[in-house]
Simulated scan of single mutants.
Amino acid sequence: MKSMSFCFVVVVFLALAEISRCELRLGFYADSCPEAESVVQFTVAQAVATNPGIAAGLLRLHFHDCFVRGCDGSVLIDSTGNNKAEKDAIPNFGLRGFEVIDNAKARLEDRCPGTVSCADILTYAARDAVSQVGGPRWDVLGGRRDGTVSRADQVGANLPSPLFNVDQLTKSFVRKGMTQEEMITLSGAHTIGIAHCLSFVNRLYNFSTTSVQDPDLDPNMARLLKSLCPKGSDFLDPKSKSIALDPLSPNLFDNGYYTSLSLRRSILTSDQILFADLDTRDSVEDKQANEAVWRFKFVNAMVKMSTIGVLSGNQGRIRTNCRVVS
Rank of each mutant, 00 (worst) to 15 (best):
F253R: 08
D254C: 03
D254F: 00
N255C: 07
N255S: 14
G256P: 02
G256W: 03
Y257C: 04
Y257D: 01
Y257W: 10
Y258P: 01
Y258E: 06
T259F: 07
T259C: 00
T259K: 14
S260M: 15
S260R: 13
L261S: 02
L261R: 04
L261M: 07
S262Y: 00
S262A: 09
S262T: 15
L263R: 14
L263Q: 14
L263S: 05
L263E: 13
L263K: 14
L263D: 06
L263P: 02
R264V: 01
R264G: 01
R264K: 15
R265Y: 01
S266G: 15
I267L: 05
L268N: 06
L268Q: 10
L268W: 11
L268G: 02
L268D: 03
L268C: 03
T269G: 02
T269H: 11
T269D: 05
S270D: 13
S270G: 04
S270H: 10
D271R: 04
Q272K: 07
Q272T: 02
Q272P: 07
I273K: 05
I273A: 08
I273R: 09
F275W: 12
F275P: 00
F275N: 11
F275H: 11
A276K: 12
A276I: 02
D277C: 06
D277M: 04
D277F: 08
L278Y: 07
D279K: 13
D279M: 02
T280G: 03
T280A: 10
T280Y: 05
T280K: 09
T280L: 07
T280D: 08
D282Q: 13
D282L: 11
D282H: 11
D282G: 13
S283R: 15
S283P: 00
S283F: 09
S283E: 14
V284R: 07
E285L: 15
D286A: 14
K287F: 15
K287N: 12
K287R: 15
Q288N: 12
Q288Y: 08
Q288P: 00
Q288G: 01
Q288L: 15
A289Y: 04
A289K: 13
A289I: 00
N290Y: 03
E291R: 11
E291Y: 01
E291W: 00
E291P: 01
E291A: 14
A292E: 13
A292H: 05
A292G: 10
V293S: 14
W294Q: 11
W294L: 07
